[in-house]
Design a binder for these strands. Structure first.
Lengths: 199, 199
DNA sequence: CACTCTATATATAAAAC
DNA sequence: TGTTTTATATATAGAGT
């Protein structure tokens, strides 16, 4: 049902929709450029909203691989930069144990910067911890305790085809442990829920 | 499977979902704070992605109404800022010749610092993504979508303790299949290598 | 505050203009 | 590169823990 000659009337699908992409460098320069452009705008928009919604000030400097530098500022880049540099000289923020490594060499220094970055680091580290906890049930199964030396996240990730015999034994043992866990769980559940699923 | 309208047992909707908001200053300080926090994180994440995807450099400085200043930088704030501000005296990072991870004032300092820290940040961010990915699989299973059509590579990632009986049966079946695979592999290996490991 | 959950608002990857 | 369309992937507001 694809009349080549009367194509004009066919409401052709113009897109397959947004695709998921991995966050790794986009190799095709054309795509990279397009993405850069789109995302830079999106970023600036987000920044703008953040400022308005929360009465925050912001300065963003982005340099594209091409070398061009784009900036965004609210109320303006200079103002925020000034404030930032200024605060560094005073540096009276809540600095945990670090009083002021207010070095002041050159126009910039790292004093507070370090603090903040440390904070960011801590934040994301905390997130990571959380995520890890979610997989707590599996942790003990993670590779590392058994004899293999493969860099797989989980021992079962190892491609069996490539394993040596001595590596398979501990694997099998673990698998059986796992199976037992499952079985015992089944019993418990069966007991509690009177659900007669057969094993 | 239709709940007998016993109001008390009805799992109440926990949320009405995201609401559209106007981009104007949020007056309630509590909400403003929460929003600031969420969006700042989102902004930094976007920035991070932009950098990775497009090999861009970036520096973001945000001052919250509370006066705190948060920064984000890739590869680090100074590098980008410095480039923007003064191409002249960018050697401040070397601290007059001593360009290392010296510790000066205070307990923290970090001077060695940003690059290093940023690197760690990136690494941990990457790890976080990984963990999140695994977490997704867990989540689906925990939610009872075991029989769903999610194409996760590792169905066994499910935290058994939290699974329900009906979720365990298919799991067990699969575990046994897996075990058989291992066993058969053992045989092959045994045959080939004449390694008398027992199963 | 830090985190979860849900329902929705937004941001965007692709493709074509 | 700018814009528009389409189909989806993400980000998040609001409420609760």
């Amino acid at each position: 049902m694809d009349p080549p000659s009367t194509a004009a009337t066919v409401p052709k699908k113009r897109s397959t929709g947004r695709k998921k992409i991995a966050i790794v460098k986009i190799e095709r320069s054309e795509r990279r450029q397009v993405t850069f452009s789109k995302r830079r705008m999106g970023l600036f928009k987000k920044a703008s909203e953040l400022c308005i919604l929360c009465s925050a000030e912001i300065a963003i400097l982005v340099s594209s691989p091409a070398g061009k530098v784009y900036t965004f500022g609210h109320p303006c880049v200079e103002a925020t930069l000034d404030r930032f540099l200024n605060q560094q000289q005073h540096d009276h923020m809540n600095h945990g144990g670090n009083n002021n490594n207010n070095i002041n060499v050159g126009a910039l220094n790292v004093s507070m910067q370090d603090q903040q970055q440390q904070h960011e680091y801590n934040e994301i580290a905390s997130l990571l911890e959380k995520e890890k906890k979610r997989g707590e049930a599996l942790e003990y199964l993670r590779k590392g305790d058994w004899n293999g030396n493969y860099d797989y996240q989980f021992w079962w990730d190892a491609p069996i085809e490539n394993l040596e015999l001595h590596e398979l034994n501990p694997m099998k043992t673990k698998l059986e442990e796992l199976r037992k866990m499952v079985e015992s769980k089944l019993v418990v559940d069966d007991h509690n829920n009177n659900n007669s699923s057969r094993v």
